[in-house]
Design a protein around this nucleic acid. Structure first.
Length: 488
DNA sequence: TTTTGAGTTGTTCGA
DNA sequence: GTCGAACAACTCAAA
């Protein structure tokens, strides 16, 4: 209303955008101090990994420029948010603090502390639904229980109708009179620091963090690959993916915006839009799970899986991380991840299955590595997906579904475009042996310039043997009547 | 309350 | 070559 209104503190955490930002929209007509706090202690091991920090750096630069252009520059700080935010609110005498809601267990705990501190100083704390279509707590079965299975969950969300229309970005913001001094972006040291090698150097060839680039990506996808998404999404050698995952992760685009763009590009036909909308709903479902089962990042949702006979082996984990398993589709994926901070979703499943099932490595180790290396690393999606592959999720793959990395490679990368790009030492092998180089005749290998064991490894484990061992491991989980809560 | 149908993404085997 | 069945048993969601 009037110019006498108390200022508001707009706390950016994850929704690094100006459009369809309910918290920002709510403060557009009064003095506002936009702030970001780098709080590495609160998240513990789930603080952004290396790839996430790279993205965050560039996204904050873009957000800062957008806010400055609208008259209210972004203040950057570091420290414990439950200290920094109340202190900042006091410094500018903010009537309230607004933010988009977070769903990570550590973030929920931190928000409780922040809310308490603000409340005892007579200030408000409001959280908006900004990064999801629906609040996880608002989606429930007929008996009021949370969903544990994807399909009924997706149907229920779809039946709730179209999401609200996206909000416009404010054209002009009112700054507070005397904003405190913040830190320079470079001083947050989010990028690899000089003695460290800048392994992210190639990320920029694929990614442009920031809201404008996110909107470009969405428009390009809606006008292009969306039409062939149902099939194209499974072909890692082509650009059949949306490429929106890191933009969604950092809130540079909202799921509401994506939903409406995809519906519009599909002529309002939900059936036609469904192959992609259902991916958005998988993201929602992962958050639903994490909200109701906050242990999902660390603990198997099926209790019996706590005694799955994993055989941790640093050497095997290392071979998998470095893309030296001897299975070309897996190695291509792991090298794509290292080079570009992203891996095609089909390949993520194959690589994850190999680690957990063939190699018997704990899914938590794979999840931790993805967390560090993916620009789209999202605690809800990453955790739920690893549990799904491991078979321990609430809506999990049948135990006997052990991906065959050769058949998967031949089925989804039949022409070898993907493998040849990321495993160039095999590029000269003919398609017929590209996904099974150890079966190629010696003469052919020689012609292709490949010496197995020197230029490219032999498989770390034989598929049939690995599959049999995995099934045997699953069999040990059965027949334990004394499982779980002791009722007898 | 009980019952029923279903459950993202696969592989293998035998006809 | 293609095709359908088998591969655990269980849990979930809704009728």
């Amino acid at each position: 209303m009037g110019g006498m209104e108390r200022p508001a503190l707009l706390w950016f955490r994850q929704d690094l955008r100006l459009a369809d930002n309910p918290a920002l929209h709510a403060v557009a007509d009064r003095p506002v101090l936009p702030a970001f706090v780098l709080d590495e202690a609160a998240a513990g091991r789930w603080a952004p990994g290396g790839a996430g920090r790279w993205w965050l750096h560039h996204s904050l630069a873009a957000l800062g420029a957008g806010l400055a252009a609208r008259g209210a520059p972004l203040l950057l700080l570091r420290g414990r948010a439950e200290i920094v935010i109340p202190a900042l609110a006091e410094a500018v005498d903010a009537g309230e603090v607004l933010a988009g809601r977070l769903y990570e267990p550590w973030a929920r705990e931190r928000d409780r502390l922040v809310a308490d501190a603000l409340k005892s100083a007579g200030r408000g704390f409001r959280l908006a639904t900004s990064s999801l279509l629906r609040e996880p707590a608002r989606v429930a079965t007929a008996t009021g229980q949370p969903y544990a299975v994807y399909t009924p969950f997706a149907r229920a969300v779809a039946a709730m109708g179209e999401p609200d229309a996206a909000l416009p970005a404010p054209e002009r913001l009112h700054p507070v009179a005397a904003p405190p001094e913040g830190e320079a972006l470079a001083d947050l040291r989010l990028l690899p620091q000089p003695p460290e090698p800048d392994w992210a150097v190639q990320f920029g060839t694929l990614w442009s963090p920031g809201e404008a680039a996110a909107q470009d990506r969405l428009a390009r996808f809606a006008g292009g690959a969306l039409a062939g998404y149902a099939a194209g999404r499974n072909t890692p050698g082509i650009e059949g993916s949306s490429g929106l995952s890191p933009h969604l992760r950092w809130g540079e685009v909202s799921p509401r915006q994506v939903w409406h763009a995809v519906m519009a590009a599909s002529g309002g036909d939900r059936d036609r839009a469904w192959p992609f909308l259902s991916e958005i709903l998988w993201r929602e479902f992962s958050y639903h799970l994490m909200w109701h089962r906050p242990e999902v990042p660390d603990t198997p949702l099926r209790p019996s899986y706590a005694r799955f006979p994993f055989q941790p082996d640093a050497g095997l984990l290392r071979a998998w991380q470095r893309g030296r398993t001897g299975y070309p589709i897996v190695d291509a994926g792991m090298r794509q991840l290292w080079q570009l901070g992203w891996m095609h979703n089909r390949v993520r499943m194959i690589a994850a299955s190999l680690l957990v099932k063939h190699l018997l490595q704990p899914w938590q180790d794979g999840a931790a590595y993805f967390w560090d290396t993916l620009v789209d690393a999202d605690l809800a999606s990453n955790s739920a997906s690893w549990q799904w592959i491991a078979g321990s999720g609430s809506d999990a793959a049948p135990y006997f579904r052990v991906f065959n990395p050769v058949l998967q490679g031949e089925k989804f990368d039949a022409e070898g475009r993907y493998v040849r790009r990321f495993v160039p030492e095999l590029a000269k092998l003919p398609d017929r042996f590209l996904h099974r180089p150890w079966e190629a005749p010696p003469e052919l290998l020689r012609q292709a310039g490949v010496a197995l064991g020197r230029d490219y490894p032999r498989p770390v484990i034989d598929h049939a043997a690995g599959r049999a061992r995995a099934l045997a491991a699953f069999a040990t989980l059965k027949d334990r009547p004394d499982e779980g809560d002791a009722t007898g």
